[in-house]
């Protein structure tokens, strides 16, 4: 770990003032960043601790405003999250371990780096995220856990967040504060697809900070769920995960929002599947057809072709369960 200085921000303006210099990283719970510092993959000269910024979770209009410094556990256990946004509570609970959920912040969770083993192995392999332009050893390497959607020849890493997948399905907005003021971007537009610049992972400007997440009211008469499929029952990243919000009335789909984890460089909103479902019959055949439509563009790599079928089955199963709950 190279030496760095440490400063604590009192508020967002303070953080952005401190964060404007070169070589600054914002520090949340540290659960990913400390590991990356130890591996010298992240090499900041200054850490600005933003855990003292707002962690409040409060009703806003009919929705919810979640301070970016809120710990994952605090969000998962919040009464309004558990009752109105069960998909979010469940997604958070499926991530990492209880200890890490107690430390990790919402903002940090969204900005965590991929767990692609080639990204982590600085001594042994090439990675365009670590060293832009040097090449990617995952594309033709051991890529069982990598992306089937949205990747490029420069990078096939997946985004590891569970929380972000639920937020994508909930139409969340991300509140940002930067040197030029405040702005809001949809969660689904926070992360970039890799293209030829996989090192640029988000639309954040230099020094710009996530200050809050805003959830709109859940669509009326819907139910939501999160299912995560992984190599072991607990404490593992997703091979495939599905967050879904589904409304069914008189056997027809009245609302459908679906997002996928473990398959793409960002929380993947499945808008093709949603469009295929809306207004149609809430049947297993329709769910399967919608899933297949979403995955029609999937580009499996050498080792991860199983994810295409696994994603189709998981989407179908989650929608089926949500439909049965409303039958």
């Amino acid at each position: 770990m190279i030496p760095f200085t440490y400063a604590r921000a009192e508020n967002a303006a303070d953080a952005v003032r401190l964060g404007a210099a070169d070589g600054v990283k914002y520090l949340g719970g540290g659960t990913n960043l400390v590991d990356l510092l130890r591996e010298s993959i992240e090499r900041p000269t200054t850490l600005v601790d933003v855990t003292g910024l707002s962690s409040a979770i409060e009703e806003r209009d009919a929705g919810l405003l979640i301070g970016a410094a809120a710990r994952n556990t605090a969000v998962a256990e919040h009464r309004l999250v558990r009752t109105r946004y069960p998909v979010l509570s469940r997604a958070i609970s499926s991530g990492a371990s209880a200890q890490i959920r107690n430390m990790a912040t919402v903002g940090g969770n969204l900005l965590q780096r991929t767990r692609c083993p080639y990204f982590y192995d600085a001594d042994g392999f090439r990675c365009n995220k670590r060293n832009p332009g040097e090449g990617c050893d995952a594309v033709d390497g051991s890529n069982r856990t990598h992306a089937i959607l949205g990747a490029s020849s420069a990078c096939v890493a997946v985004h590891p967040s569970d929380l972000g997948v639920a937020l994508a399905a909930l139409d969340a907005d991300v509140h940002l504060h930067g040197t030029t003021g405040n702005r809001t971007v949809p969660l689904t537009e926070l992360h970039r697809l890799p293209g030829d610049r996989p090192d640029v992972e988000t639309v954040l400007e230099p020094g710009e900070l996530i200050t809050a997440i805003e959830l709109p009211a859940p669509p009326p008469a819907t139910r939501s769920a999160y299912r995560k499929v992984r190599d072991r029952a607990s404490y593992a990243f997703a091979l495939v995960s599905v967050a879904a919000v589904l409304g069914v009335e008189d056997g027809r789909v009245t609302a459908a929002r679906i997002a996928l984890g473990g398959v793409a460089p960002k929380p993947w909103r499945a808008r093709t599947a949603e469009a295929a479902l809306l207004g149609g019959p809430a049947t297993e055949q329709a769910f399967r057809a919608a899933a297949e439509a979403e995955l029609a563009d999937a580009k499996p790599l050498r080792d991860n072709g199983f994810k295409v079928e696994l994603a189709a089955r998981t989407i179908t199963a989650v929608l089926g369960r949500l439909a049965r709950e409303q039958a």
Binding site: T31, V34, L47, Q99, M103
Partner: peptide, 12 residues
């Protein structure tokens, strides 16, 4: 609250 102290910077 339980935490993993290895990923905790003491200054925090």
């Amino acid at each position: 609250e339980r935490i993993v102290s290895c990923l905790a910077l003491a200054v925090q």
